[in-house]
Design a protein around this nucleic acid. Structure first.
Lengths: 238, 238
DNA sequence: CATGCGAAAGTGGTCTGACCACTACACGCT
DNA sequence: AGCGTGTAGTGGTCAGACCACTTTCGCATG
C-alpha cells in the first residue's frame, strides 16, 4: 500500500497488505464477508497461522471484525471504527505529551466550533444546551457528572459539525481523567466560574450562529486550560 | 486493566491484558525486553500461537516491538509509537470520509505551517528545501518520487513544529496513495504548475519566518486539493 | 595478548495438522 | 406452517516441528 521497499518483507506483512489491497480495490466492501481463513491462506500461499496473524492485525486496527463461527467481515470502515485505538493516547499521556495534545486541540477546537456554529441543527443545539445545564447543575462543587457533562458538551459540539472523522479524532484527544484534573485544579484555585463562563460564551455563539464568536470563545477556553496545565506541570516539576 | 465483564473472554484477549498489566505495573518498562514467547506462553498457560497473537496485537498498537532473533521489547511509548496505527485511516478511506479527512487537514495544516514558520530550525528549513527541489526535479511528468517528496515536504514542515503528537496525527491523515491520485489528477488537467506554486509559496513563507503568510499559503494549498477531490468525487459518482 | 572469525545457542517467524467452540442453515418432526 | 435439532462449516486454540535471524562465546590467527 505504501512502502514497496526492496527489503525482505515478512509473510504476514504481505498478507496484511494483500487484504488491505482487496479492500482498497473494492473487491470486498464495508460490511461484506471475506473468504474463510483457510481459503485466504491457500489463496495467498501462506499458512493459516500467518493468515490469522494478518487478520488479527487488521482486527486490531478496526478494519476487520471476526465473528466466531460465522466468518470475518469488513467493518463499516467508519472513522470511529478506525480511530478507536486512538483513544489511549490522551489516557496514557503525561507531562510534555499532554501539552502537545492540548496544542493540537487548540488548532482543532476553534475551527470545529466555528464550523458547528454554521452547521449545527436545532437538535444539535438542544443537546449541547442540555449538557451545559447539566454541567452547571451543581452549586460550586464539581462532581463526576460535571466532568462527564463537560466532555459531552465539547463532543456534542464537534459532532454537530457533521464531520465524523473530526469527531473521532477530537474524542481521541480528550479524556475523562484529564478533564477531572482540570476541574479539580480550577476548584482549588476558585476558578470554576471562569470555566462556566467559557462554556456559556461558546454556547451563546453557537445559538447565535456566529462562527467568529464561536472560534474566539473556543480559543479562549482551550488556551485557559493549556495555561493552567503549563503552570501545573511547572509547579510539580516537569 | 479495564473491563472485568463476566463474559467468557478469549484466551488471546486475556494474554493481551496480562501483558498490558505487566507494563502498567512497571514490571517491564519502556525499552525493556520481555520474556521469550515460549516462556510467556508457558507462564500464562496458553499455546505459543495464542501468545503470538497477543503479542501481535500489542505490536500493532505500537506498545511492543518484536525483533527477529533478538526478542520482544516494550517501545518507548512515545506518541509517534502509539499513533502509527492511525495511518490506516487515510489508506482505506474513500469518498466522503476522504473529504472529511481533508477538512481536518484544512484545520491542522495552516496552523501547523504557521507554527513551523516561527519555530523551524535552520536544519529543518534545509530539509524542507531539499524536498522541494526533489519534487520539482522532473520536468512535467510527476513520477513516484515526486509524490514521495510531496509527502515528505509536508511531513517535514509539521515535524519542525517540534510537536511530535501533531506530527504523528498529521502523518496519519496523509497517504501516498491519495497523493498519487492528486498528482495524477492535476497532471491530466495540466495543473501541476499550480501545485508547484503552492509549495514554493509555502516554502518562501517559512524561510521568511512569516507565520501569517505560511498559514495563508497552506490554506490555499489544502483548499485546492479539497476542491479537486470534491470535483473528482462528483464526477465519478459519489 | 589482542583480534577477528566462525560455530552454536537462543530468539522470533512460519508451517502443519489436529481438535474445540460456536454459528448458521437445512432437514425432519410435531 | 412452525419449531427443534442435527450437522456442516467457521473462527479459536493447541501441539510440535523447522526456518531465519541475532547474539555470544570460544577458538584460531595475527
Amino acid at each position: 500500500m505504501s512502502d514497496p521497499d526492496g527489503e525482505r518483507t515478512s509473510v504476514t506483512r504481505r498478507a496484511v497488505d494483500r487484504i488491505k489491497a482487496m479492500i482498497a480495490d473494492g473487491r470486498v466492501g464495508p460490511g461484506e464477508r471475506l473468504p474463510t481463513e483457510r481459503d485466504l491462506s491457500a489463496q495467498f500461499g501462506v499458512s493459516r497461522s500467518s493468515m490469522r496473524e494478518a487478520i488479527r492485525t487488521l482486527t486490531t486496527l478496526g478494519v476487520l471484525e471476526a465473528r466466531h463461527g460465522a466468518g470475518v467481515y469488513v467493518t463499516a470502515l467508519r472513522p470511529a471504527d478506525l480511530l478507536e485505538t486512538f483513544s489511549v493516547l490522551a489516557e496514557v499521556s503525561q507531562g510534555r505529551t499532554l501539552l502537545e495534545v492540548l496544542q493540537v486541540r487548540r488548532m482543532l477546537e476553534p475551527a470545529a466550533t466555528a464550523l458547528a456554529a454554521a452547521r449545527a441543527s436545532a437538535e444539535d443545539l438542544d443537546r449541547v444546551g442540555a449538557l451545559l445545564d447539566r454541567m452547571e447543575g451543581g452549586p460550586d462543587t464539581p462532581c463526576a457528572d460535571t466532568v462527564t457533562a463537560d466532555l459531552g458538551f465539547h463532543q456534542a459540539i464537534v459532532a454537530s459539525t457533521g464531520n465524523a472523522t473530526l469527531a473521532a479524532i477530537h474524542d481521541g484527544l480528550s479524556s475523562h481523567t484529564f478533564n477531572a484534573r482540570v476541574w479539580a485544579g480550577h476548584r482549588e484555585a476558585g476558578l470554576t466560574a471562569k470555566l462556566r463562563e467559557d462554556h456559556e460564551r461558546i454556547h451563546e455563539a453557537l445559538v447565535a450562529r456566529d462562527p467568529d464568536a464561536a472560534r474566539a470563545a473556543a480559543t479562549v477556553h482551550v488556551l485557559r486550560v493549556e495555561r493552567w496545565l503549563s503552570a501545573d506541570l511547572a509547579g510539580s516539576g516537569d
